[in-house]
């Protein structure tokens, strides 16, 4: 249904296509390049001699006999215990998402239904908290965590990430609940439910699209965090991102930068799959609140 107002001249269309091809190169090429390069040896990934080595794996063939090698992955996952970091990240993400969503749905629902002025202040304070860089809070945590021996454990990181996540979760779920008609739960309350029963039996069954979208973003926050996890987890409990950062310090000197490359590819893969399955929800989450406002 191309209306005439949308018709474009040929040069303009060609320009748009050329621009998109360029953007696709910028957006996707670095990832494909690194994925391909992660199966080579360092001499190919960083080839001073000829950039085509990285494509054909010339040094890799000399050093290992094949055009592809899993050395980087073996080094990262087995030698450097990257699997442990993967396990820690999974635990952190699972608990952060579950707890954030539980707290967030309750709070977001209340904020969307109350008409008093303090809801506004609550949301504004949450916005200010959202704007603060998380690392500014870390120097507040450290002395207390050291004193009470809480430093370094996964549960500590989980609860801290949940708290840092709350402002965003509240805002997002608040705007989702605003879109669920008030009549729905109010009629349940007329029928004799109390507020919590109305929430439990009427709101929970219809809230899932919003909760899934918010959950994706809490997951991303926990998965991508570096500032907090790097500072409050010890060596044993490190998650993936600080672990990759620590590879840079130790392995770059040993000439094992390929471990870091393999780890980076391993950390990107789950995100890739996540976008594949949840593209629609991510897009709707990014625009929620923006388009209506």
């Amino acid at each position: 249904m191309a209306s005439k107002a949308q018709a474009r001249s040929l040069p303009l269309r060609l320009f748009a296509i050329a621009f998109l091809v360029l953007w696709m190169l910028l957006a996707a090429f670095p990832f494909l390049w690194t994925l391909w390069g992660s199966f080579k040896v360092e001499g190919d990934f960083f080839s001073k001699a000829d950039w085509a080595y990285a494509i054909f794996g010339t040094r890799t063939q000399v050093e290992t006999g094949g055009a592809f090698t899993g050395q980087g992955y073996y080094g990262a996952w087995v030698q450097e215990d990257f699997w442990r970091a993967v396990l820690n990240t999974s635990l952190v993400c699972l608990f952060v998402v579950t707890i954030s969503l539980t707290f967030g749905t309750l709070g977001g629902y209340a904020l969307s239904r109350s008409t008093y002025r303090y809801t506004f202040w609550f949301l504004i304070i949450a916005l200010i908290f959202r704007a603060m860089p998380p690392i500014t809070l870390v120097s507040g945590y450290l002395p207390v965590f050291f004193q009470w021996n809480l430093w370094g454990h996964l549960p500590t990181a989980i609860i801290v990430l949940v708290a840092i996540n709350q402002p965003f979760t509240l805002w997002m779920l608040h705007s989702f609940f605003k879109n669920i008609p008030k009549d729905l739960d109010e009629s349940a309350m007329v029928d004799g439910c109390n507020r919590f029963q109305a929430f439990r039996h009427v709101i929970i069954p219809v809230m899932w699209p919003g909760v899934i979208t918010t959950g994706l973003f809490s997951f991303l926050l926990a998965y991508n965090d570096f500032a907090v996890t790097a500072m409050i987890l010890d060596q044993q409990n490190q998650t993936m991102v600080p672990k990759i950062a620590s590879f840079l310090g130790t392995t770059q000197t040993k000439g094992n930068v390929m471990f870091a490359v393999a780890a980076v590819v391993s950390a990107t893969a789950p995100l890739f799959i996540m976008i594949m399955f949840f593209q629609r929800q991510i897009v709707s989450g990014l625009t929620a609140g923006a388009v209506k406002g």
Binding site: F31, W51, N224, A267, M274, V283
Partner: peptide
């Protein structure tokens, strides 16, 4: 849209490392 989302969704530390390796004097 799928490919456009990649640079944003990928962990900032990881995304910047990927660019850093490419921009290295020996990178592409």
């Amino acid at each position: 849209i799928f490919f456009s989302l990649l640079p944003m969704i990928v962990t900032p530390l990881v995304g910047s490392l990927i660019l850093y390796w490419m921009i290295d004097a020996r990178g592409i």
